[in-house]
Structure formats: structure tokens, C-alpha cells
Nucleic acid binder design. Structure first.
Lengths: 319, 319
DNA sequence: TTGTAGGCGTTATCAA
DNA sequence: TTGATAACGCCTACAA
């Protein structure tokens, strides 16, 4: 392995001079700098990250934690984060699973962005207390080292209910999400509040944000009543897709027998027939904002929490 | 920051004893080991990865390089790799972009798995020559430090053409992929060979593996001829989806006016109506095998190349 | 069984 | 403008 020592030897200077030259310090002549850089190139020198990190105590890497890699959901978000970090000279790595959470206290990364209900808030707080910085996308934690960039679930749910109201819906089935999930809780709270305000009857059907749970929910709903059309607000698109699957197999027509609204605006929804009506928000922007915030935190600045706003996307599933 | 020094002080022993104890070396008493570990826990000690890496010269981390995070395509593959690595005690990080490619020579990772046409073969070889180990999933490189786990594109394409033949197809449109891509080249070669064998007429429509390019290809094809049905073999599902989009907007019926086969068996295809016929393979297994191979290489063992076999998945898009 | 001390490759503080 | 040299936190012969 070739290190600065080898370069120093070949250049006939000391290692410190080499270090200065390589780091563009103004403490060396333009001339020696160039000469040293040339030799470094010639020797195929590549700095050793471990050594540099040990000294510098920062890696310029931000980790993004996801529950799994399955969702096509994440693509835009990650692209947004990556683009956002790039501006400030940070690299992004994507991780999943509890062992990699150690990257944070081990100082392998300078900070983290969390969208992973598997990551315990308890641990997040523990890390924050150790002085590490994080941006959370899926929970509420009050801590000076933590910044929250959350979806405007309240706004989104209200939009969905408004649509239902505007169609003079008599009864609404809400396919809910995980009991302990922040987003699903907020969607539920806002939906109930709004439905009560208009005096619309509703029923909760438990789901867990997965497609199969949407399928099961659909079965319950369709066998519950003979009335048609049925109005459903699924708390995410995946479960809405489960409803499509069920309807397909049981001769129920989406858009006629069922009137369905989802949440998330997954790409898949736009390919369904009829198109899935849903609540949308910019995942790309979400990522960009998260990136900007984590960089601020890492640099020791304050970062204000922010909300990502939503809009309604019409689709024939809710004519 | 609390380091082994602090533990040593508190335990009244030397730092080496602490190091031994923490690393389960047989050089310390069971008793002192436990005592030291207890103190470490109490002090919330977490080893500094940079320091450890500097000495150990390995991180137990494998990087996976992707072109982008967009494809829902990657989910299963990454889960497979992660699961495979876990068995051997390695962590996985997912990266994208040329700057993060430096992780390899910088020794931030012990090895890499590459599925990213953006990653220049030239650089891969350069890294391999420096002694780094890699598994490539999307190209052919002969090098002792590199192992190839490739799709059986030849088999898959042949399966697709066989289906066409079995339906007495007269002419086939092939929507091809990127000119310089390994997979698309192989699919093209095998398809042409097979079509020529049966004496079936065919025409190449250039695509680049993206959905819009499939859409454009469809436009060309549909305006090219008035004959129906048209038979299309799209070299990946994304482009096939583009064909669906076009057909949708122009009153052409998939499965009737067009007979379509894709490649990759994306989840999305199974939700399309009618279901997309396609060539399938286990992405999960692909990932598991890649993981196993990179670990072998990193440990200095030989790793044989392998092929991931394909099968035909029927769908109403190709009745 | 434990302690001492040198080294991993860089950076950064002093002197020169 | 450059060069010695001491950290950075951990591992590991070698010595005791």
C-alpha cells in the first residue's frame, strides 16, 4: 500500500509537506504542491479513510435507514436525499437492520436520516444524547440534536375526507395502518375528526400498510354489506392495491361498486385500471429537505422542523 | 468520548487487558473479562470504527453499487444479498454514484457487488488490480479478484422466442436495450439467433430499458403496420409497461391487438391488466449467491462464476 | 495472567 | 516555506 510516507520519500520532502500539499493548504508553494500531487498520481495514491477519519473525526457520510428495500416507494426519496447531500459535499449510504445502526455511535457516519419504524426511538434518543445528529421522518422526538421532517398527514387525510364529503357519501370504511405507527395514527385521528364534523358514519378496518392486509380488509368490508357503492379510504396505496386484488377476484368493480382513495401516490397506482385516486406529496422534496437539515445539524447549526404538504390526485377509482 | 483507556482506568488494569477482554481473547481470566465488560457497558463504551479499521485493515462491510434507487426491481435482490452476507457476519451498505466508488480503494469496505452500468469496467479492473475484490452482476470481466454472477439471458430470451414460435407468429418486434449493456446485448444475440433458426421475420426497435423508451417504441411499432395482432418481445418489463401506456391511450388492446412478453418479472407486471407475460428469475437467489461469492473472495478463496436461470411466466398479455 | 510499547496512516502543532 | 513529532483509538507482539 502506498501512503504519504512513500510520496514523501520519492519527493524528497517530509510527510507533513505532502499532507499539506494534498490538502491544498496554503502553507506550501504552488510549485511543490503540483510536484507532490503529480507524484501522488503517479504512485496511484489513495488516502486511507480509516486513518483520516481517526484524525479528522468525521467521515462526510450520512446514513439513511430504511425498514427494507422492497418499496418502489423509496426511489424518489433517496434520489432527493442524495441530491441534497451532494450540494454540501456529503455522501449517502443506505442501510437497513439493527446491526448497521451501530454505524452511528461508531462514528462511521456523521449523521443519519431515519425512515424505519424498526429503529427504536429509545436508541435514537440514546444516540442523540451521545451527541450524534439525526433527522427523523416517521416519528416525533423532541431533542436538540434531532430534527423532524414529517408528512402533513392531517392535511392529507382531511383532503381525502373532503372528497368523500363532496360526493355525499353516507358511510366510509377506513382501512387503517399499524397501531403504533406515527403516520397511521395521525391519519386516523384527522380522518375521524373530519368525519365526525360532517356527521358521516364510518367503520375502522385494521390493516398494517401491507398489500395482503388490504386484501383481507376488502374481504371483511365486502362481506359486511350488500350496499353498493362502498366508500373506502385506505391509509396507504399498498393496502388500496390489496383492495384492487380482492375486487378483481370477486367481480366487484373498482370505481363503481367501490369508491377508493389511497395515500402515498405510488407509481404503481397510476398504472392500475382504473387509476387509483390518492393523496400525493413530493418524495423528492421530502428527501431534499431532510438532507439540508441533517447537514445543518451536523455542522452544529439549529434546524427547524418542517412539514411536507400533500395534495389530492384524482383517479377513476373515485369517480 | 469513552475509550478503552477510560475503562482501563476505572477497572484498574492496563488498556491491553481491556482490549483482550473486549475481544474475548483467552489471555484474560473469565472473571476479569466479565468485570471489564460490565464496566464497558456501564460506561456506554462503543468501539471507534476508524481506529479499529486502521489496525485490523478490514471493516466487515460490503458495498452494493446500483445505478439508481428508482427500480422496485432492486428490493428482492438487496434483501437476498443482505441475508446472504448476514450469515457470514458482514454488513451491507447500498451506494450509488461515482464518488462513493472511492469507498473501495479507500478501504472503507472489504468488497463490492456491482449492478451499475455507470460503474466503468476500467475502474473495476483498476481496483481489482489494487487487490480489491468484487462481484459483478452486469458485465464480463476476467480477473482473479472478480467473480461474475450473470443472468442466463440466452436461456431467457430463447424461452421467450419459443413462446412466440409456439403461437405461429409471423413477425416479431424486438424492443431492445442499451447498446453497450451486457444484458441487452445478450438478449439481442440470443433472440436473433433463435428467430433466424425458425425463419421468423423480425424488426429491432431501439429502447434503453426505461418506460418512456418503451412508449416511444410502441408508437413506432403501431404506426408501422396495420396488421393485428402485433407480437412484441420487450427486453425488459419497464419498456413493456411503456407499451401498455401507449396502447391505453390509443385504443389498442393488450392481449388482442398486441401480444407482449417482457423480461424481469417485476411486481408491477402482475398488477397490470392483463397480466404481463415475462421472463422470470429469482432475484433473491441472485443476491444470496452474490453475497456468498464476495465473502469467499474477500476471505481469499476462489469463487466460481455462476449463472442465474430463468423461466417463463405466462400472462394474458400473451394469450 | 497482565503490562509495556510500538505501530496502523493521517493530520496538526510546533519549531526551525 | 518546510520538517519533526505528537496525537487519534485500538490491537498485539513481547516482556514481565
Amino acid at each position: 500500500m502506498v501512503g504519504i510516507k512513500d510520496i514523501a520519500k520519492k519527493a524528497g520532502v517530509s510527510i507533513s509537506t505532502v499532507s499539506y500539499a494534498l490538502n491544498d493548504s496554503p502553507k506550501v508553494t504552488e510549485e511543490t504542491r503540483e510536484r507532490i500531487k503529480a507524484i501522488a498520481r503517479e504512485l496511484n495514491y489513495i488516502p486511507n479513510m480509516a486513518a483520516r477519519t481517526l484524525k479528522r473525526r468525521q467521515t462526510n457520510i450520512i446514513a439513511v435507514y430504511l425498514t427494507d428495500y422492497a418499496g418502489s416507494f423509496y426511489g424518489e426519496l433517496l434520489d432527493g436525499i442524495k441530491k441534497g447531500l451532494q450540494v454540501y459535499g456529503y455522501e449517502m449510504i443506505v442501510c437497513s437492520g439493527s446491526k448497521s445502526q451501530l454505524f452511528i455511535p461508531e462514528k462511521m457516519v456523521d449523521g443519519a436520516i431515519v425512515l424505519d419504524w424498526t429503529f427504536k426511538s429509545e436508541d435514537i434518543i440514546k444516540f442523540a444524547n451521545r451527541g450524534h445528529h439525526m433527522v427523523v421522518l416517521d416519528r416525533i422526538i423532541e431533542h436538540p440534536n434531532i430534527c423532524k421532517i414529517l408528512l402533513d398527514n392531517k392535511g392529507g387525510s382531511t383532503l381525502a375526507i373532503e372528497q368523500l364529503v363532496s360526493r355525499h357519501t353516507k358511510k366510509v370504511y377506513l382501512i387503517t395502518g399499524p397501531k403504533n405507527g406515527h403516520d397511521s395514527q395521525e391519519r386516523l385521528k384527522a380522518s375521524e375528526k373530519e368525519l365526525n364534523r360532517y356527521g358521516i358514519d364510518y367503520e375502522l378496518i385494521p390493516g398494517d400498510f401491507t398489500e395482503p392486509s388490504g386484501y383481507d380488509a376488502a374481504r371483511k368490508i365486502f362481506s359486511d354489506t350488500k350496499d353498493r357503492p362502498i366508500s373506502i379510504f385506505a391509509f396507504n396505496d399498498e393496502m388500496a392495491i390489496g383492495v384492487y386484488s380482492y375486487a378483481d377476484k370477486h367481480a366487484e368493480v373498482i370505481g363503481a361498486d367501490v369508491r377508493l382513495i389511497g395515500f402515498d401516490n405510488m407509481q404503481l397506482g397510476s398504472f392500475l385500471k382504473p387509476r387509483l385516486a390518492t393523496i400525493s406529496y413530493s418524495k423528492y422534496r421530502w428527501g431534499m429537505v431532510a438532507a439540508e437539515k441533517i447537514v445543518r445539524l451536523v455542522k452544529g447549526k439549529k434546524a427547524e422542523d418542517e412539514l411536507i404538504y400533500t395534495s389530492f390526485v384524482a383517479g377513476k377509482s373515485f369517480p
